[in-house]
Amino acid sequence: MDSDIQISITDRNDKTHMLEVPSDIGMNLMELCNSSEISKMGICGGIALCGSCQVYIESDHELTDCSNDELSMLDNLMYVKSNSRLACQIKLNNKLNGLKVRIAPDQ
């Protein structure tokens, strides 16, 4: 389908999964990781309150800026790098075709 995009997710065992996903159903990256059973995350349901969904963005896609809530959660997390983001705050859309992410270590 036209709306499908490819996303690569590297899990905590260093295994890379290539996923083809619809970009027009309002799904976020945390939900994608959960539904594809790559990693169990999302304690807070996706409102930037638990930090269980930290990922590193490894491609140079332009993402929406971090909200204040996301930045304050990142302030509290361990293993934070300059390319850290909360997967629940990244809504999938067709500009993210080819996005590469790596799941951060468990807190």
Binding site: I43, C50, G51, S52, N76, L77, M78, Q107
Partner: peptide, 8 residues
């Protein structure tokens, strides 16, 4: 006292 929140 490191206060970075708690995880279950």
């Amino acid at each position: 006292i490191p206060l970075f929140g708690l995880v279950p």
